[in-house]
Design a protein around this nucleic acid. Structure first.
Lengths: 148, 148
DNA sequence: GAGATTAATGCAACATTGTAGCATTACGGC
DNA sequence: GCCGTAATGCTACAATGTTGCATTAATCTC
């Protein structure tokens, strides 16, 4: 088994899950890997279109669901109740997210783990926690500071 | 002005916001006040129907938006990307929520405040935080324990 | 209390996001 | 290259939320 690289080849990752290595899966996973922020369906469909690839809505849903199921990507549900995706599995690296109210982007805060213990009332058996901050991201904060 | 009660009259609360005191608003706010858990649109529409009141979908959306806007209720977006509502304002009492994966209910964890300080990377300016736990609620946990 | 004013409602149509069924395509084993 | 089947790409549908506009009814003025 090759040593884990920051971004192992998308095709290798897909093959190692036992699934077929298709154009769509490779393209979608690479798009997610190359993005700093989380992407929604429209973002990904647009990226696929830019690459001249087919971008059927249903196929995209199924491809993304499959990637999440295989642990190759993780899903965040934003306040606009739309799903956003990012490369990298969810289990083992539970982290917080940041939603910028200005640009609408969702970023991962890998440094903030959500598996730390919270004091829940008796009886509750939490299995995972979702922590989402809302506010202004560094980019938008800089823009505002520059304007003021 | 009367002293603040645990649940001041719904009509009084509505009037104090400067809005018109209508049957629908009173009924919706009372339904929310009397519920321990957060309710989605279907829950509320069903409760209105049970009271023999009209329950137009659009009116319900607008009524709930208005209540949230006035700070008389707050909104949580669940993992099923449906909105859930509960009486009581959001500002000033930011708290965590618990989503039960078994029964699907969303409960408020008033004891866990989300305005405590987290260590965010430089540049981020958070204004509020959303903390949602997923797992088994006390009720479902008891049922499972009884069965096992 | 009667009439006027206009916020709130109720209806129809539409927009967005996600699913289901099924025929066709193309990946991977031979 | 051929075949079996997973994956795709349609179409149609479901769930949730929004917009526009005519009607109703809560409040104000008298």
């Amino acid at each position: 088994m090759p040593a884990p690289a920051p971004h192992p080849s998308a095709a290798n990752l897909i093959a190692s899950c036992g699934g077929r290595v298709t154009r769509t899966r490779i393209a979608v996973l690479e798009i997610l890997q190359h993005s700093q922020r989380s992407l929604n369906h429209d973002d990904i469909a647009a990226a696929l279109a830019a690459d001249g690839l087919p971008h059927d809505r249903v196929t995209l849903y199924r491809t993304l669901d499959w990637l999440v199921e295989q642990g190759l990507a993780h899903r965040i549900i934003g306040p606009d109740r739309a799903r956003r995706f990012k490369a990298g599995g969810e289990t083992g690296s539970q982290h917080a997210h940041f939603h910028c109210d200005r640009c609408g982007h969702v970023l991962c805060l890998e440094s903030i783990k959500t598996d730390e213990r919270f004091e829940l009332p008796a009886g509750y058996r939490p299995e995972r926690a979702e922590l989402v901050f809302h506010g202004t991201c560094p980019d938008c904060g800089r823009l505002r500071a520059a304007k003021t």
